[in-house]
Nucleic acid binder design. Structure first.
Length: 421
RNA sequence: GCCGGGAUGGGGUAGCCUGGUAUCCUGUGGGACUGUGGAUCCCUAGACCCGAGUUCAAAUCUCGGUCCCGGCCCCA
């Protein structure tokens, strides 16, 4: 027996139905906001990902040399490919450029709850502008998607990485030390952050203030204690979000994110009931294009962890509407078998989902089968009715039967399609 | 990379401590019932994660590996 590689999953019909359903809701919502779908390759030059975040990331990438000696990696995320695509070919589209994408990503990590080596992301980028409206637009879309798919127990925490960056810069922290300190602050590891800040030359007062900032969370009013440009910027963002009727929203200046390239607002959506892997979406504004050889262009985007989102929905009792075939066509005996296929083909041409007996089962078994696949109706093709050019249509829920002339069958099935159940 | 708990037909399980090739439920296929389902009964097929060791004998004990679950690290 050959088994699945570690950290990967197979998806059965029920699961795929649920996944496609949720995915289509996300797509539709993004399209409603004026975003259009793109797709990029599953593998890229490893350099694309090491450029922006350093070689330590290589440890978690599925990287390898291809037969031409190129350093290739399965994509660990989708933002960098999207921006590469933008720089390469999309830079001349009208701005703001609003794109979204979805697909599998790969990270060589220890699998655990809500964490896989092959996982799926759904992300968007709004490229070419950075102001409170564009940031709010992206956050509003993230929230709308969560609402549209019916997720309830989520919260959005919005921060502004510029506040901390400025603070550290003003205090004279050298550029290369900033990410290290930010990382500790992100994890709230103050015991480790404080010595680092001292070492970087910060005085007691600014250290205290810095930690104070990371602990600020709550309604917009907490910004009163901050002041500065970032404050008014965030207030404007929240103003637009309020006008857009986005809820489940709070300020949290402790939101930092692991990425170095974020410059402005940053936000995360998490679902507390998921435990350790509770973050279902992360995003912010950044500029990456210049790293890939393009002009410097600001963008705001987010990535939704598709798998975790589904786990969260499942925990809330979500069930995808089951796709069912409209009718199951049952020949009674061998004599009408070929006629049954004729009728099935005719129904399918009319766009009516039809299944037909392929097991040569008797009528009783076929009805049982029709029930188990959830067919709404059974079309019983028997010699008696065929004698006068008709078939029997049985409603699988009520058990009612009607004799329908063959010519009227598609119309009957279509016309009453939404009734019953 | 680290720590803990697991792995028995497709799904769910009993058996494991105290070694003697496996229980039950459900699902699959067939039949009772070759023109009427979701009930019942019967039949059939189907499993001890992999490898090594101990033993007359291993699902059971020992070791190694793989995978899963939960947590740490990390999360671009």
């Amino acid at each position: 027996m050959i088994r699945r590689p570690r950290g990967t999953r197979d998806f059965g019909p029920d699961e795929m139905e649920a996944r496609r359903y949720i995915e289509s809701l996300m797509r539709r919502e993004a399209e409603t906001f004026g975003f259009r779908e793109i797709a990029t390759p599953v593998f890229e030059h490893a350099e694309l990902f090491t450029l922006k975040s350093g070689p330590n990331i290589l440890a978690e990438m599925y990287a390898f040399l291809d037969k031409g000696g190129r350093e290739i990696t399965l994509r660990p995320e989708l933002t960098a490919p999207a921006i590469r695509f933008f720089v390469n070919e999309l830079a001349e589209l009208p701005r703001p450029l609003k794109i979204f994408y979805t697909g599998p990503c790969f990270r060589y990590e220890r699998p655990q709850s809500g964490r896989f080596r092959e996982f799926y992301q759904f992300g968007v980028e709004l490229i070419g502008v950075q102001n409170p409206e564009s940031d709010a637009e992206v956050i509003a879309l993230a929230a709308s998607i969560m609402d549209r798919i019916g997720l309830k127990g989520y919260r959005i925490r919005v921060g502004h990485i510029g506040i901390l960056r400025d603070k550290l810069k003003v205090a004279g922290v050298p550029g290369e030390t900033v990410p290290v300190i930010l990382q500790k602050l992100d994890k709230k590891l103050y015991d480790e952050a404080v010595p680092l800040m001292k070492e970087a030359g910060m005085d007691e007062k600014s250290i205290e203030e810095t930690i104070g900032i990371t602990e600020m969370s709550g309604p917009v009013s907490v910004l009163e204690e901050v002041g500065g440009e970032a404050k008014s910027y965030l207030e404007e963002v929240f103003g637009v979000l309020e006008a857009s009727k986005v809820s489940n929203l709070q300020i949290d200046l402790g939101v930092i994110r692991g990425l170095d390239y974020y410059t402005g607002i940053v936000f995360e959506i998490d679902v507390p009931k998921l435990g350790a892997e509770k973050q279902v979406c992360g995003g912010g504004s950044y500029s990456l294009s210049e790293l890939f050889g393009g002009e410097k262009v600001f963008s705001t985007g987010f990535a939704i962890g598709f798998d975790r989102t589904l786990i969260a929905l499942a925990k809330e009792g979500f069930e995808a509407p089951r796709r069912r075939v409209e009718v199951h066509v049952i020949p009674v005996g061998d004599a009408t078998r070929s006629k049954a296929f004729e009728i099935t083909a005719m129904l399918r041409k009319e766009g009516i989902g039809a299944d037909v007996d392929l097991m040569r089962r008797n009528l009783a078994k076929n009805l049982k089968y029709a029930d188990s696949i959830g067919a709404r109706r059974a079309v019983i093709v028997g010699e008696k009715e065929l004698g006068f050019g008709a078939v029997t249509v049985r409603d699988m829920v009520s058990g009612e039967q009607t004799t329908i002339p063959l010519g009227d069958l598609p119309g009957y099935l279509k016309g009453t399609r939404d009734f019953g159940v």
